[in-house]
Deep mutational scan, measured.
Amino acid sequence: MQYKLVINGKTLKGETTTKAVDAETAEKAFKQYANDNGVDGVWTYDDATKTFTVTE
């Protein structure tokens, strides 16, 4: 399945996608991506759209 990440950071904004077997695996990949880019915020997930959002 394909999952999307929407980033609403202080210095980084945008979107990225990943393919993963489940939401938990996608979340780990997205959190690593956010961490690598210095984004630390509040996470939400919408199962209907398979979209994670992180807001600083």
Rank of each mutant, 00 (worst) to 15 (best):
W43L: 03
T18R: 07
K13E: 05
I7F: 06
E56D: 08
K19A: 10
K13T: 10
W43D: 00
T11W: 14
Q2D: 14
W43S: 00
L12D: 05
K10R: 14
V42L: 11
D22N: 12
W43E: 00
V21Q: 11
A20S: 06
G38H: 08
K19L: 15
T49A: 07
Q32S: 07
T25R: 08
N8I: 15
L5A: 03
A48L: 11
A26H: 00
K31W: 06
V54F: 03
A48N: 11
Y3D: 02
F30S: 00
G38S: 07
E15C: 14
T16M: 15
K10H: 12
F52A: 00
K4S: 07
F30C: 02
T18V: 14
K10P: 08
E27S: 07
V39R: 02
T44H: 11
F30R: 00
G38P: 01
K28W: 08
T49E: 06
A23Q: 12
T17F: 15
D47M: 08
T11K: 12
E56I: 10
T49R: 06
T53Q: 05
A20G: 04
G41H: 02
A23R: 15
A23D: 05
T16G: 05
K10E: 07
M1A: 12
Y3N: 02
K10S: 10
T51I: 06
T16P: 03
A48T: 12
G14H: 13
Y45P: 00
G41M: 02
K50D: 02
K50V: 04
V6P: 00
K10Q: 11
T16L: 14
T25Q: 13
F30T: 00
T17G: 05
D22T: 07
N35R: 15
D36F: 07
D36C: 09
V39A: 04
D40E: 12
A20W: 04
Y3F: 13
E56V: 10
A29N: 09
K28S: 08
Y3G: 02
V21E: 11
K50P: 00
D46T: 05
A20V: 04
G14W: 15
G9H: 08
K28V: 10
D46M: 04
T49N: 09
I7W: 08
E56W: 10
D22S: 10
T18H: 08
A23I: 10
Y3Q: 01
K13M: 09
L5F: 06
E24R: 12
Y33A: 03
L12C: 13
A48R: 10
T49M: 06
D47R: 06
E27Q: 10
N8W: 13
W43R: 00
A26E: 00
L5E: 02
D47V: 10
L12R: 10
I7E: 01
D40Q: 12
V39G: 02
E27R: 13
A20P: 02
K28E: 08
T49H: 06
V54A: 03
F30Q: 00
D40I: 13
T25C: 09
G14K: 12
G9S: 11
K31I: 08
T44E: 10
Q2G: 06
K31A: 05
V6G: 02
T18L: 14
K13Q: 11
N37C: 12
V39L: 11
T44G: 05
E24S: 11
G41A: 02
N35Y: 14
A48Y: 09
Q2S: 10
K28I: 11
T44A: 09
T51N: 02
A48P: 07
N37E: 07
T17I: 10
D22R: 05
E56L: 10
E56N: 05
Y33S: 02
E27V: 06
V6W: 04
Q2P: 07
T51P: 00
G14E: 12
N37A: 13
Y3I: 02
T17L: 09
Q32H: 07
T11M: 12
N8C: 12
A34W: 03
K13G: 07
T49Q: 06
Y45I: 01
A20E: 04
T49D: 05
G38A: 05
K4M: 08
T51F: 02
W43I: 03
L5M: 06
F52R: 00
T17C: 11
K19Q: 15
T44V: 10
F52I: 02
A29Y: 15
L5D: 01
F52H: 02
L5H: 01
M1V: 13
K28F: 09
Q2W: 15
E15I: 14
K28A: 11
T49F: 04
F52Y: 05
V42W: 09
Q2C: 14
Q32F: 05
T55A: 04
V54W: 02
K4E: 04
E24I: 11
W43P: 00
T49S: 12
E15V: 13
T11C: 14
N8K: 11
T18Y: 12
Y33W: 15
I7S: 03
N35F: 15
T18D: 03
G9F: 10
I7L: 08
K4F: 15
T53V: 07
D36I: 10
T49P: 01
V21D: 11
E56M: 06
Y45L: 02
L5C: 08
G41I: 01
Y33P: 00
Y45N: 00
G41S: 02
Y3S: 01
Y33R: 03
N8F: 13
V42C: 09
A23W: 14
G14L: 14
T11E: 11
K50Y: 11
A26F: 01
G14P: 05
K19G: 06
A23Y: 14
K31E: 03
W43K: 00
T49W: 04
A29F: 15
K31R: 13
G41K: 01
D36A: 14
A29D: 07
A23M: 13
E15H: 11
E15N: 08
G14I: 15
F30Y: 02
Y45D: 00
Q32Y: 05
W43C: 01
D22V: 03
N37F: 14
A48G: 07
V54Y: 02
A34N: 03
G38D: 07
I7A: 03
N35E: 14
D36H: 08
E15P: 05
K19I: 15
